[in-house]
Amino acid sequence: MADAQVELHGPAHGEGPPRRHGPVARVAVLSDVHANIPAFDAVLAEPDVARADFVVLCGDLTWGPEPQETYERILGLGERALCLRGNADRYAAGIGTAALTADTPRQAWIAERHSPEAIAFLDRLAFGLVVEIEGLGPVHFCHGSPRSDHELVTPGTPSERFAELSAAIDGRVLVTGHSHLQFDRAVAGLRSVNPGSVGLPYHTGEPGTAYWALLGPDVSLRTSRYDVEDAIARARAAVDPDAERYSDTLVNAPDPEKIVAEAERLIFVN
């Protein structure tokens, strides 16, 4: 059960219910890019991504070493890109519009590296959306959960909490991000899917692996290889205040089992 004292970060005031799209045959799902341009470029170059009817981006897009470049890549996708707000996007937009005050040098640094247009883009991102996909029906997409962009859904989320957080969705498939863990599981009578993180995954695979998913007519969990040393070099060249910690995460990713245990203990993490 959600703690009544936790502040939920759901749809923006006046946003209304999730917009609906489709029906379409194929949707590529990318989440938690975290401004890792080499990883993002590698996934965008995949033939199945290039051919997809839509590219759904499940939040935490520009919070990383190259925010503006990430925004420009998204613009290049045109109307195929359906973008959602992650908790990091909420922070970047809040700091960039002076609605929030940066708590750390990196928070200020990231916000400053967005153009006014990029900040405005983040500020109007949708909280959730629904796409009718061949073979899957209506699929609900969000960053954290359908009730807050900072609620963690993992492979270990108990059926009781999952049933509670998904109670209002239309469809049998819920796609979330935020946990940086790739999975596809049946729980509480629904299908819980996370494409994993493109730019900062938690995994046991080789460094330089980006995670994503292709939906329609079923769920296909995918990976793409990219030059991790290039990503590290770009973070350092950008003078990202968090470049060393970021780089260490790219080459020494956290253990998924530990992440699941910590996430299920905390439940809500910004």
Results as ranks from 00 to 15, higher is better:
89 D>Q: 08
90 R>T: 00
90 R>V: 02
90 R>E: 02
90 R>I: 01
90 R>S: 03
91 Y>F: 09
91 Y>S: 11
91 Y>R: 10
91 Y>C: 08
92 A>Y: 10
92 A>N: 13
92 A>K: 10
92 A>E: 12
92 A>T: 14
93 A>T: 06
93 A>V: 00
93 A>Q: 07
93 A>Y: 10
96 G>Q: 13
97 T>R: 14
97 T>H: 12
97 T>C: 14
98 A>N: 14
99 A>E: 15
100 L>C: 08
100 L>S: 10
100 L>E: 12
101 T>K: 13
101 T>L: 10
102 A>M: 05
102 A>L: 00
102 A>E: 01
103 D>E: 09
103 D>H: 02
103 D>I: 03
104 T>A: 07
104 T>W: 06
106 R>Q: 04
106 R>S: 04
106 R>I: 01
107 Q>K: 12
108 A>N: 07
109 W>A: 07
109 W>Y: 08
110 I>W: 12
110 I>P: 07
112 E>Y: 01
115 S>P: 06
115 S>T: 02
115 S>L: 05
116 P>H: 12
116 P>A: 09
116 P>Q: 11
117 E>D: 13
117 E>F: 07
117 E>T: 09
118 A>V: 04
118 A>Y: 10
119 I>T: 14
119 I>M: 03
120 A>K: 13
120 A>F: 10
120 A>E: 13
121 F>S: 06
122 L>A: 06
123 D>Y: 09
123 D>T: 05
123 D>G: 15
124 R>D: 03
124 R>H: 09
124 R>A: 07
124 R>Q: 06
125 L>K: 12
125 L>D: 10
125 L>C: 12
125 L>N: 14
126 A>S: 14
126 A>C: 09
127 F>G: 11
127 F>V: 13
128 G>P: 12
128 G>E: 14
129 L>Y: 09
129 L>N: 09
130 V>F: 00
133 I>H: 08
133 I>F: 06
133 I>R: 10
133 I>Q: 07
134 E>W: 01
134 E>A: 05
135 G>H: 02
135 G>D: 00
135 G>P: 02
136 L>R: 03
136 L>H: 01
136 L>P: 04
138 P>S: 06
138 P>Q: 04
139 V>S: 11
139 V>F: 07
142 C>R: 03
142 C>L: 01
143 H>A: 02
143 H>E: 05
143 H>W: 02
144 G>Q: 09
144 G>T: 12
146 P>W: 00
146 P>G: 01
147 R>D: 09
148 S>I: 01
148 S>F: 04
149 D>M: 01
150 H>F: 08
150 H>W: 14
152 L>R: 06
153 V>N: 10
154 T>R: 10
154 T>N: 08
155 P>S: 00
155 P>H: 00
155 P>M: 04
156 G>I: 00
156 G>T: 04
157 T>F: 15
157 T>Q: 15
157 T>G: 13
158 P>W: 05
159 S>H: 11
159 S>Y: 08
159 S>D: 14
159 S>A: 15
160 E>Y: 13
161 R>A: 07
162 F>N: 12
162 F>L: 15
162 F>G: 12
163 A>I: 15
163 A>G: 13
164 E>H: 06
164 E>L: 08
